[in-house]
Design a protein around this nucleic acid. Structure first.
Lengths: 341, 341
DNA sequence: TTGTATGCGTTATCAC
DNA sequence: GTGATAACGCATACAA
């Protein structure tokens, strides 16, 4: 009759000579079901190419199968890696990923997110830094009753709602590496104020200096805002110092690239005259000349873990007490050498 | 009574003392409605914070408000720019973006897409290159009855289903620029076989040479696969030539970066000894040293246009015969100079 | 201008 | 084990 449209559960029921409920049972793998009827229904399903309507399912179940990704465009590679990690887990489930960028500068960010959550009512959402650091946002999710996982550079919330790297520790290792190479004047290009990641990384830098018995000097720290240009400006300031630092740790690769740029403009040889370490291990790091020593954090792994936390204890996927902390590694390339002096 | 859950249209109706239908009319901006009742209903809506359930709406309307983005991870910046462009348009509508990456190498790509389309039944989907070039995929969308827009480097389909740049023309201009600077041995690092973009760009290169009265030599074209490493390998081959080309056009920035890398390893001065032009104007282009002359295509604009095509003639948004072709521009930076010889 | 009855495709309740 | 029947939240016919 109405073959023009997508077949529904009714069509299957009619053709198989059973009730809707039975078909529903087949779809939902109900255990109490006669093997014969099951096979018959499955045959019909395969034959007419029936596929359940997620909208209707969502309505009846009073819950849907959408996972939201809320972010404020940190950097392209990061967002995409997260998406990839999430989708790797979601691929074999009935969940779909729905992306919702926001503008943290707009002032209506919270309202925007609230509207998104109330409208779509996603099953769970993942929050990317830097907005993941916003406690009000986390409270909003909790209040609305939406599962959420925050990604961050430190564990600033309950483990159940976090996937975090340990940036402080990672940077400590990186700067330690510099000190071990013989550097005694190690500068830092820090991230912007208000960013947890910037704070953690600076802490790691200072700890490493203390561990190495080196003085922590304010003049050796220049602040940037994670952009290439700000990295250039910060590097200018650092390289104007006398004596010049022989090494500089940069809070991200982008700024490291800017620093490298400036150093070369000044005729400095990298790494002979200046060692540079970045953070993130974005593609730019390996393509720079010389390739950049940097810190890599397991972003895809973290995203996968986040996805599991979001959809976990829902399906048969056991909700083992998953760890919230993930370890970063120092990627040693050619931008670091002992000081030449 | 049941205040624990999200308010529904029934709650609004009851509290406002009207029928569900009237509330529905308010929501859908029906013109034939008493101003008083409208205001009363709107007041209740605002008071109890009612927000329509999209799932139920979708079910009743027999259509949903999801726009799909199907891609095979071309490059991160591109995917993100497209997302941004799409969401800019979708932001003020009731549509949401749902991302669905696929693996064109897996063999099950078409089945994967088909399943996605049949399950979610998105209102429309956007196809990114290179899979957008796959005609079978486009036919699949058409067959299933899903609106679609293909993004490409040339108009290889009906304008209604396309947003395209004109890569051939853009490259012609870029190589012309090289010729105008006095270069007579201009090499090319081409993209991988089977990519429409690679083909178009090579065509543009050859046309420019012909226009300039220069011979088209096979040896001056080295093939890469759009990766940094392949750019390095291709550059090696080109720079081994005697006489050496004095300029090289690269089919994308990534490969241009690889070429730059190799040139510097060989002690060549850029641009004095070798001029380099890239394509895409990704962030890497401006951060390279020297900054890379490259072709910028209006990716966000194209994405916005695509979004309009997808949701167009649905809302009041007029479906003016939008153009399918978008023009690229040559971004002149420091990697090009007249040949030094 | 507003209300009533009915349907959208699925699942849950509770019988048989 | 299986099947009527009533939700789920909203929209469309068709009356009133």
């Amino acid at each position: 009759m109405k073959k023009s449209t997508q077949p529904t559960i009714n069509d299957v029921a009619r053709l198989a000579g059973v009730s809707k409920k039975t078909v529903s049972r087949v779809i939902n793998q109900s255990p109490l079901l006669n093997g014969d009827t099951r096979k018959r229904v499955e045959a019909v399903i395969a034959e007419i190419g029936y596929v359940p309507n997620p909208q209707a399912r969502a309505l009846a179940l009073r819950r849907n199968f959408l996972i939201g990704l809320i972010h404020d465009n940190p950097n392209a590679q990061m967002v995409l890696n997260v998406q990839q990690g999430l989708l790797e887990v979601l691929r074999d489930t009935e969940f779909e990923l729905i992306v919702h960028p926001v503008d943290r500068g707009s002032g209506s960010m919270l309202d925007d997110v609230r509207q998104f959550l109330e409208r779509q009512r996603p099953y769970g959402v993942m929050l990317l830094p830097p907005i993941s650091e916003n406690d009000t946002l986390a409270e909003l999710c909790a209040e609305i009753g939406c599962r959420f996982v925050r990604m961050g550079s430190a564990q600033f919330g309950p483990a159940a709602n976090m996937v975090a790297s340990n940036d402080r520790e990672a940077v400590r290792g990186a700067v330690e590496h510099l000190a071990a190479a013989g550097h005694r004047r190690i500068g830092m290009i820090a991230g912007p104020h208000g960013f947890r990641s910037a704070f953690e990384r600076q802490q790691g830098y200072e700890q490493a200096l203390e561990d190495a018995g080196l003085p922590v000097q304010r003049t050796l720290v220049a602040q940037g805002d994670y952009t290439f240009e700000s990295g250039m400006r910060a590097a200018e300031r650092l390289l104007d110092l006398a004596p010049r630092p022989t090494a500089v740790f940069c809070s991200n690769d982008e700024m490291a690239a800017g620093a490298l740029h400036v150093a070369r403009q000044r005729g400095l040889d990298i790494p002979a005259d200046l060692s540079i370490v970045g953070f993130d291990d974005t593609s730019i790091a390996s393509h720079l000349w010389p390739p950049l020593t940097t810190v890599r954090w397991p972003i895809a792994t973290m995203a996968r873990a986040a996805a599991l936390k979001l959809i976990g204890d829902n399906d048969e996927i056991a909700d083992e007490p998953q760890d919230a902390l993930f370890v970063s590694t120092l990627i040693r390339r050619a931008s670091v050498a002992p000081p030449s002096a």
